[in-house]
Computed example of a mutant assay.
Amino acid sequence: MDLHVSEAMGRPDLIRLDDGLLCLRFETMKIVSALAAVRHLLDTGTVRRGDTLIDSSSGIYAYALALACHRYGMRCHIVGSTTVDHTLRTQLDVLGAHVEQMPPSSDLKLDQSRRVARVREILRDHPGHHWMRQYHDDVHYLGYEAVAALVREETGGGPLTLVGGVGSGASTGALAHYLRKNSVDVLLVGVQPYGSVTFGSEHVADPEIIIAGIGSSIPFGNVRHDLYDTVHWLAFDAALAGSVDLLRRHAVFAGLSTGAAYLAARWERSEQARRNVLFIAADTGHRYVDTVFARHREAAAIEDLTPRPVHGTAELTLPWSRMTWQGAPAPRAAINDQVGTGRQPPGGGGSRPRRS
């Protein structure tokens, strides 16, 4: 029996959608990393019950951290993006989190920079607060060790292609790390939006939006580029088509980043018939009812969408590009020398095996 609702909400479902195509479905994925991170900080004496944990968030991590603080008796302070909606803001208020929300901005980089600057101001005035640094601290890898064990057990430990949004690195990267640590043959496929510095697409603008949660306009310190074998970049319209098709074909109601991962996973499955291909559904589709699912009639047929193969980021074009990454180093614009930890994820091991 679970002792707190966050434990139930953080437990994923593994669903076989088709021959060789698997979906790892979360209600809210970042609960996994937030719970384990807070527990680790308490166990190591870094923080104590009653302390205030602070971080910046565009939405999902804010909810996850608020639940973890509720679970472990901590105070929670969130500097939220302009994208935090009324429903989430209300839940955070009731859970006891203190929320500061940035003013409206059409510039994602400005929104992210403002949030980080505000966190630093708060820490200057309240040095006893602990900054969770979800984008930079490898402690957020820890929660995925149990998820990797579940995947390994349910798939029999055979060859696996793992597909999902890169985000802060503490999801696809962490799962690949722990699976490889246990000798699973894993090909890691990262999904990125256009306009993200993480894998070098900041020079290509998406006329719609940057897909929240899987990319960034500022460097993230806990993305391990050496873990990734392949990268897909998808625009909003392609991800919308993927989300709509996933609901229509498989009845899985999931967010926009999942639609992008689903398209990439289908393509990888068509190229690798002998491997199971598993993609991550990081959250449900409720936040996207108006912006995505209400537009289902204009969604392109996914059979008409194929990625353009590119050999360098200078060749990236909308709506979908694919590049063999092969563990290459991070692009210079993706390196933040001041905040990167430079550490291996907790637990050691798990390096990306070199392939001929």
Rank of each mutant, 00 (worst) to 15 (best):
D2N: 14
L3E: 14
L3H: 14
H4V: 00
S6F: 13
A8Y: 15
D13W: 14
L24F: 09
F26W: 07
F26T: 01
K30L: 08
D43K: 13
G45F: 12
D51K: 12
D55F: 11
D55C: 11
S56D: 10
S58L: 08
A62R: 04
C69K: 01
C69P: 00
H70V: 01
Y72R: 04
M74W: 05
M74V: 03
R75W: 02
H77C: 13
D85H: 12
D85Y: 08
T87N: 10
L88G: 05
S105H: 09
S105W: 06
L108M: 06
L108G: 00
R115P: 01
A117H: 11
I122S: 09
L123Q: 08
G128N: 13
Y135H: 14
L150T: 13
V166T: 05
V166C: 03
G167P: 05
G169S: 09
A170L: 12
T172V: 13
G173A: 09
A176M: 13
L179E: 07
R180K: 11
R180T: 04
Y194P: 01
G200F: 04
S201I: 00
E202N: 13
H203I: 00
I210C: 13
I211W: 03
I214A: 03
W233P: 02
A235G: 15
A238K: 10
L240H: 12
G242S: 03
S243K: 12
L246T: 00
L247G: 01
L247P: 02
V252Q: 15
V252N: 13
F253V: 03
T258S: 14
L263Y: 10
R266F: 01
E271Y: 00
L278A: 05
Y288L: 06
E298A: 15
P307H: 02
R308K: 10
V310W: 00
E315P: 07
T317A: 15
S321Q: 07
S321R: 00
M323T: 02
W325P: 02
R332I: 01
R332F: 04
V339A: 08
P345W: 05
P345S: 12
P346M: 06
G350Q: 09
S351P: 01
